[in-house]
């Protein structure tokens, strides 16, 4: 089933064109990556998917709702069905980690306090944080813990769809691999569809099912790793066909 359809999306600011007719499709239950040079509009595309920015023209359909014609109430309902991990966490600084995770549960459901705490605790420990971290404020957390806490908040409402903006950036290599494993585990156990922006070669090689490459204002390649590697676009050549990337690929094949 198609979760997200992006059709002929054009984005421009004045005379600067960022996207010139993007097309991509994300299926249910897959981990989908969006890759591209800096400035190619990856984050902008993500923002358009989560209704933070309107494309100049074209359609984006998520869970069957067309975002260009969606009504306010439907949009609010749709927003509860996805979770978003922002690049720098974007935790609310005046609330503790537990309060951050609890916020949507408190606002949108009538679950009582005891049960809420149970849910919050399970989400916090699911992302690999100790439960006592729930009592800390974001300013008291390290970078890796902020990412995990933000993931716990994104998972609070049991979303069907999870958007991750560079989830492994700023983490140490071991932390980044653990984070990858966590994402795969959550996808398999909770049946979540994951859309992630990433530059991390290891993530691309090991956890991503399909991905698209943004370059020159277009999607220049889309599909699994092997089908993208067949493309001869200069960016794909540059990104995947250098010595470093080849070495990485060999190593991850060995470990698989």
């Amino acid at each position: 089933m198609e979760m997200i359809k992006v059709r002929d999306v054009v984005t421009s600011f004045g005379s600067t064109v960022i996207h010139d007719g993007l097309n991509l499709t994300i299926n249910q239950g897959e981990i989908y990556g969006i890759l591209g040079e800096s400035g190619s509009g990856k984050t902008l595309l993500l923002k358009e998917m989560i209704m933070l920015h309107k494309p100049t023209s074209g359609n984006i359909t998520i869970l069957g709702e067309d975002l260009t014609t969606i009504r306010y109430q439907d949009a609010q309902y749709l927003r509860r069905q996805w979770g978003i991990l922002f690049q720098f966490g974007a935790l609310f600084t005046s609330l503790t980690v537990a309060e951050n995770v609890e916020l949507q549960l408190k606002e949108y459901t009538n679950i009582d306090k005891k049960m809420r705490e149970k849910i919050v605790k399970s989400k916090i420990s699911m992302v690999g944080l100790p439960v006592r971290a729930g009592g800390l404020y974001p300013s008291e957390l390290s970078g890796g813990m902020i990412k995990r806490a933000a993931l716990a908040r994104a998972l609070a409402m049991d979303p069907k769809l999870l958007f991750l903006d560079e989830p492994t950036s700023g983490l140490d290599p071991i932390g980044a691999r653990n984070f990858d494993t966590l994402i795969v585990e959550l996808k398999e156990l909770l049946g979540i569809t994951v859309v992630m922006i990433t530059h991390d070669l290891d993530s691309i090689y090991s956890i991503i099912d399909r991905f698209s490459v943004l370059a020159d204002k277009h999607v220049v390649a889309e599909g699994s790793l092997s089908s993208v590697l067949e493309s001869d676009h200069p960016f794909v050549e540059r990104f995947f066909k250098n010595d470093y990337a080849k070495k990485r690929l060999n190593r991850s094949e060995l470990s698989v």
């Binding site: 919050v120 605790k121 399970s122 420990s125 699911m126 006592r132 585990e185 909770l190």
Partner: peptide, 12 residues
């Protein structure tokens, strides 16, 4: 999954 992550400790 949830059983694995069930903890008794409470949030301070």
């Amino acid at each position: 999954l949830l059983l694995k992550y069930q903890v008794e400790e409470s949030i301070p």
